[in-house]
């Protein structure tokens, strides 16, 4: 098949997971495990779709999806950071709430079509043979997601705020003793993660499919969680993981369309099987780089 089209479609299929996984990586860097990525993604998918259809502007849709993902994640944040609830259970609850909420809102929008997000054709650059169409003729969100990878990497590595965020994630008691506001830092990280997951979801409903069907994220949020582990909590690792995964998805979809002798069900389960295999390889090698305070509640005793 056409390699130009292949690479271009891998980039499209990887973008939702890239956005969600990048957000979750920042959340986990601050020491919080939010298992509600799937719920925030699906809510972002439906809110983004609804807003884009109503306003006629896909960009408004993405903005709305980011806001709704962040709002939902702050509910998780309030429970885990202020009411000190169990992070695993609360994250699961967030996913269940998100799935219900999205199905409720989405029932009005089934069968409609989203306004198209235009390709961002760059003068001259997009006309470069092969490379131009392959890499430089995408919609704006693909570039936003790539820019966000670089931004998150630089933020965590070079800025003071990034250092504080990492400190909070590694040892919340010491960070607290130094006078940093552990809970506030974490709430900010959680909101960022929610916004990213929301945008990732909106990319599924507005660009990749592009229409609304119930449960359409189909586990992408969980795969994003796996990619964070795969990436050893590094921004460029997330990029590689998301694009590899996008590649697997595109190849299995193409094989399905080509009508090979391999059963369709085996092909559609392959992304999940590959995720498991990758998780096993990573863990057998020894998971590296997990923030030391990941998943632990912080309660200041003084």
């Amino acid at each position: 098949m056409d390699p130009v089209l292949l690479v271009a479609s891998i980039m499209v299929s990887a973008t939702p997971i890239l956005l969600a996984a990048l957000g979750e990586m920042v959340v986990e860097k601050s020491g919080v495990l939010n298992l509600g990525v799937e719920g925030m993604m699906i809510t972002g998918a439906v809110m983004g779709f609804a807003i884009a259809v109503t306003s006629g502007s896909p960009l408004m849709g993405f903005a709305g999806a980011a806001v709704s993902g962040a709002v939902l994640s702050l509910a998780f944040g309030f429970l885990t950071q202020y009411l000190l609830s169990n992070q695993v259970a609360t994250g699961l609850g967030l996913t269940l709430v998100g799935l219900g909420l999205s199905a409720l809102i989405g029932s009005h929008y089934e069968g409609q079509r989203a306004p198209a997000l235009g390709k961002l054709d760059m003068p001259l650059l997009s006309d470069i043979p092969m490379l131009g169409r392959m890499l430089l003729s995408h919609d704006i969100m693909v570039y936003v997601s790539l820019a966000l990878v670089a931004a998150v990497w630089a933020f965590l590595k070079y800025t003071r705020a990034g250092l504080i965020l990492r400190a909070v994630g590694e040892d919340h008691a010491s960070a607290h003793a130094l006078g940093y506001k552990v809970v506030r830092v974490r709430m900010a990280a959680i909101a960022f993660g929610g916004a990213c997951a929301g945008m990732g979801g909106a990319y599924v409903s507005l660009v990749r499919v592009p229409q609304w069907t119930e449960g359409m994220t189909a586990g992408a949020g969980w795969i994003a969680l796996a990619i964070v582990v795969f990436a050893s909590w590094r921004a460029f690792g997330v990029l590689i993981g998301a694009y590899l995964f996008g590649g697997v998805t595109v190849i299995q979809l193409n094989l399905q369309a080509a009508g090979t002798t391999v059963p369709v069900e085996l092909l559609s389960m392959s992304p999940y099987l590959i995720t498991i295999i990758v998780l096993v390889i990573i863990s057998a090698r020894g998971v590296q780089g997990a923030p030391a305070s990941l998943g632990r509640s912080f309660h200041a005793s003084s």
């Binding site: 009411l83 259970a89 269940l96 219900g100 409720l104």
Partner: peptide, 22 residues
């Protein structure tokens, strides 16, 4: 009543439970 509202209802129940557990 939309069928999905029950799903949301059940999810909310878990959320409130975790909140009141404080």
């Amino acid at each position: 009543l939309p069928g999905a509202s029950i799903q949301l209802f059940q999810g909310m129940l878990l959320f409130f439970l975790l909140a009141t557990d404080v």
